[in-house]
């Protein structure tokens, strides 16, 4: 996709389809159906460097392979972190991998978030549901060099309070004076004293300088469609809004066409796209 502003990431050339063995070091339940795995290479080598927003293909022997975003701290070269929701047979097998189990990993693939473009500007992160894991590496990166950025506003929405991932860490982030982390859920019982409503309902209350901001969005496409529209209405140009399009994929090396998205391949040209590039394809059915 020529008009997307970032250069394509090189696809790893040596044995691009051969997974390397990684061992599960820990497995933490985030919600009843979502687990975070910390994995490190079985051979003790460093993990391949990755950019926030990239993904790996995780392979469970005898079950199959799925694309899973990197969700850990990108500066940690000893381990990769993946947060996986049990959506079907493959993700169930990955999410339930106990410590000590070997999982095949190839990657990283795809274009990440254009964090460079955030320098000197306000940053708005909008995450819905399992959209927070692919944005967490961005937040780690921003906070590691906090002085380089203006305001940091995060809006995170989930279906109910029980569906919030990284709950303990969110409490820590919410205590920080140098970022604003808003959490909202679609519905709640009386034990929840936080906000209820869509992430878009929090946008009017979000503080940023419209002409000098970037926004990174990840979550259900319909959520990104409305959030991007509302951020644009508040003055952020389409060219400063970026979205991660996690359309289903198989090969991850732009061969099979499974993840074709308009004229682009999510695995090669994405998953992160600029809003003006994908606007017309948003929330249309998968091809």
């Amino acid at each position: 996709m020529a008009s997307n502003a970032l250069p394509p990431q090189p696809i790893p050339s040596s044995h691009p389809l051969a997974p390397a063995p990684f061992v599960v070091r820990s497995q933490t339940a985030e919600t009843p159906d979502t687990h975070t795995l910390v994995l490190s290479p079985s051979d003790g080598h460093a993990v391949p460097p990755a950019l926030p927003g990239q993904f790996n293909m995780l392979y469970v022997f005898g079950v199959g392979e799925a694309a899973i975003s990197l969700s850990g701290d990108p500066s940690d070269a000893t381990a990769v972190v993946h947060t996986v929701r049990n959506a079907g047979p493959i993700t169930a097998a990955i999410a339930q991998s106990p410590p000590g189990q070997t999982v095949g990993i190839r990657g990283p693939y795809g274009r990440g978030w254009p964090i460079d473009q955030a320098k000197g500007r306000d940053v708005v992160l909008v995450a819905g549901g399992l959209g927070l894991p692919p944005l967490r590496p961005v937040l780690y990166g921003l906070l590691a060099h906090r002085e380089r950025y203006g305001r940091i506003e995060v809006i995170y929405g989930a279906r109910t309070p029980k569906d919030l991932v990284y709950y303990g860490q969110i409490q820590q982030w919410r205590l920080r004076p140098d970022i604003r982390f808003q959490v909202t859920v679609d519905a709640a019982d009386r034990s929840w004293y936080g906000d209820v409503g869509l992430v878009t309902a929090r946008i009017p209350d979000t503080r940023f300088e419209p002409g000098n901001s970037v926004a990174f969005l990840c979550g259900p496409e319909i959520m990104m469609k409305y959030a991007a529209r509302d951020l644009e209405a508040r003055g952020i140009p389409q060219s400063s809004i970026w979205l991660s399009m996690e359309r289903n994929m198989k090969c991850a090396v732009a061969v099979c066409g499974h993840c074709q998205f308009g004229p682009a391949f999510v695995c090669r040209d994405g998953p992160v796209f600029r809003y003006d590039v994908v606007r017309d394809w948003l929330a249309t059915r998968e091809l």
């Binding site: 959506a87 279906r159 869509l198 259900p220 409305y226």
Partner: peptide, 14 residues
């Protein structure tokens, strides 16, 4: 009304 419509889609359900 729009929010309610989006909530009806149960967007996080996948």
């Amino acid at each position: 009304l729009e929010n309610t419509q989006i909530q009806l889609l149960d967007i996080h359900g996948l």
